[in-house]
Structures are given as C-alpha cells and as structure tokens.
Amino acid sequence: MWKRKDLLGIKELSADEINQILDQAVPMKDIIKRDIKKVPTLRGKSVINLFYEPSTRTRTSFELAGKYLSADTVNIAVSTSSVVKGETLIDTGKTIDVMGADIVVIRHQASGAPHLLAKHIKAKVINAGDGAHEHPTQALLDLFTIKEAKGAFEGLTVTILGDILHSRVARSNIWGLSKLGAKVRVAGPSTLMPPGIKEWGVEVYHRVEEALEGADVVNVLRLQLERQQKGLFPTIREYARQWGLNARRVALAKPGALVLHPGPMNRGVEISPDVADGLQSLITEQVTNGVAVRMAILYLMSGGGVADVPR
C-alpha cells in the first residue's frame, strides 16, 4: 500500500516501496505500446510540472505520463538564473495549491527545494531532480530497465561512471540499487567524488578499467561541461580519454553487460557513439521506461495499492 504524501528521494523509500513502483510500471508500459495510449484513471486530476531548470526529457516524460492517465497536465517553466529573484518558491507553490493542483512535479537547482515545497502545500510533491541531491524518478526508471533486462538485483554489480560529486542521478541510483541488493561501484576522478562516499556502502574506483571488470551494468553519467571551467579536471579531452566509455572498455565488463545513460549525452565525451548506439545500450529503452515508471508513480500517489475490493 502506498502511504507517502510526497516522493522526495529514494533514500527514504523501503525496498518494498521501490518494488511496488517497479511492479506497477509493468502494466503501464503495456499502455504506452497500445494504439490508444490513454486510460481514464486520473480523469479530473491535475498534475503541475513546476520546472526551475530547463529539462525537455523529464518534463515531457511526466507530461505524457499524466496525459496517458487522463490527468490534466500543466507546465510551468520558471526562467530564473537566481533562486532569490522574483516570487518565492513557497508563494508560487501556494498559488498552484489553491488553484487545485493534486500533484506538483518540481525540478529545482537547489537541493532540498522539493522538501521546502512539500512542507508548505497540500498538493503532493514529486521531486523531478533537486540540485545535487536526488532524482528519484530517474533512478526508478534505471532500476526498472535493469530489472526488465536482468530479472533481479541480487548478485548484480552496477558501475556508475563519471561525475559522482554533482550527480543527483548517481545518488538516487546508489540508494536504490543498494536497497534492492545490487553491488554498487562508483568510478571517476577523485575531484568529482563526494566526500565520505565510502561510508555509503559503495566501492570507489579511480581507474575505469578496474571499475568495469565483471560489471553487469554500466550507468554512464552526463558530464556537465562547465565543471571543467571550475578546474575540477584539466580538459574535456583528458576526461574523455581517462573516463569515457568506449567499446574497448565495455568489453571489460561481463558479456552482455547493459549500458545506461540518463541523457542527454555528450557523445564522444563520457560515451563513445558506437557504445551509445550499440547492442548493449538500453538508452532508448530507458526513455520509454521513464514514462511507464512515472505513470506508476502518479497512479500510486493518487491513491495507493490494495489487492482487492469486495464485490
């Protein structure tokens, strides 16, 4: 049974809750594949996408997920470079609240912004990525993709490769994979590694070859190119040579290892084009699964999940 008002992060979810979402995403994915991609389930419910950061992929995914379930979806793109400019988040949230929003999906550059919003509004809040904190729906779709391909998580080794320091995708994936029983490795330059990451129960590698050896899944993170300007690594070229995933490196992983990437990709930087488009890549499948997982979340958050109702 789904009991949470909000979905703010994977860290606070139990393995049961994660599995509930993954299970509900299976029938949702069937709907996406039908000719008539619409069920009346959330008719009369409104889902507001409140995006303080540009995002095409996640916003469209949430929008379609809502529409396939017949919810009314509205996108609000707040174009501010500064978090202190203009109306406060709480005021914006309260405005949306009294307009009758049922669910607010928020993307924000400040870690913890969804928590602030959730504390002040009645509508349910879904975190669609906050700062360097969490991106729970991305991790859930990654988990769903892995589960579809591999069946289970126990005994799997998943390598997360790249800029762990700034990555909310990495954090959410680490929590989710660990809770479901997979072994997690992280790999990247030490200047892009968060402090104390070893305390999170992951193995830390600074050589990509070692990190890939025997891995079942490689999740490649997007490199934010502006990090280079801040001196966190010398050049994009060196990053690509030291850390980029190419065919030669993929071959070090287990045969048939899966390659994931949350997108959008910097082809030729963190991932080579032949790997991105290769047979082991599930990158396009992730996009489809993203819609299914978000449908499952919207469905669960609009009610819950009990087995049967007496007739």
Binding site: K11, S111, G112, D130, G131, A132, H133, E134, L165, R168, R171, P194, P195, G196, I197, E199, W200
Partner: peptide, 13 residues
C-alpha cells in the same frame, strides 16, 4: 559542513 552529510544532501560543503 563539507563531509558525508553535505554529499548526501547534495549541498555544497
């Protein structure tokens, strides 16, 4: 504070 907590919360340390 810069440390495991800041890393976990995604806040700059």
């Amino acid at each position: 504070h810069y440390g495991p907590m800041s890393a976990m919360l995604g806040l700059k340390g």
